[in-house]
Amino acid sequence: MRSSKATAFVLALPWIVTFGIFWLFPLLYSFAIGFTDYQLLARDYHWVGLANYVNLFSDPAFLAAIKNTFIFVGGTIPFTTVIALAMALLLNRSFKGRGLFRATYFLPSITSMVVIALIFTNLYSRGGYVACLAQLIGFTPPEYGFLYDRGTALYSIMAMDVWMSVGYYMLIFLAGLKAIPDELYEAAEISGAGRFRQFFSITLPLLRPVMLFILVINSIKSFQVFVEIFVMTKGKFDTATMVYFIYDSGLTTHFSFGYASAAAYVLFVIIGLFSILQFFLLRRRQPLW
């Protein structure tokens, strides 16, 4: 018994060492320097207590980043989830060419985000396809393009994010749908339940674990949105999110690692609380619907 434990420990050792060096140590170290005025170029640093946290909550740029992040999360997750579920329901039926549709919808998920962001930067530009489309349906597009307008820049990136993400979550929903036994639907049909009733009484409740998984990982991903912002707007036009703020504070303009670490821990707490809330809401025994 002892020997098998020792073997397990030895086998897990490479992972433990890697985790300790590349994850745990940076995590604890960044927590510690969040209480200092550590700047990359300075030769020494000092303990500043909670000053970084206090300053963060009076920094308009950080408050704007929190606001933008919440807009991003709140504006993408419901759309991504609902569209992915709808697509999964459609593709769960059997029809000719179903495989092709599945592959096509999943394609954006395996494409580089930088490539997608560059393509959409073009689509959103002045005189681009999206502007032409908007004109066709009677909307006046922003004068300098969708990404050069404070009213549309963030929402345009959000729309791209939804388009990019739905295929991946659709696949997870599909796996969840496949796991629901057909007998349940047959029994419901015999009992006279219509498709609407079947969806709300069988499909949705049984998809709850999948839904929880999707909501949690999508929330974490959305709270950490960075690449799209970096490639498309560099945080301009009111699009700077929390991770962009951390990058800007720590690694570009200011090189203030202490301040950036404190901001990273605020984000960590927000994501943690949000995930706990989702677990709490979706793990309840009584049906939500």
Binding site: G127, Y148, K234, K236, T252
Partner: peptide, 13 residues
């Protein structure tokens, strides 16, 4: 159309 007088820089670091 498609002629502009002045090249105006967008916000760019």
């Amino acid at each position: 159309k498609d002629i502009y007088g002045w090249g105006s820089n967008a916000p760019e670091k």
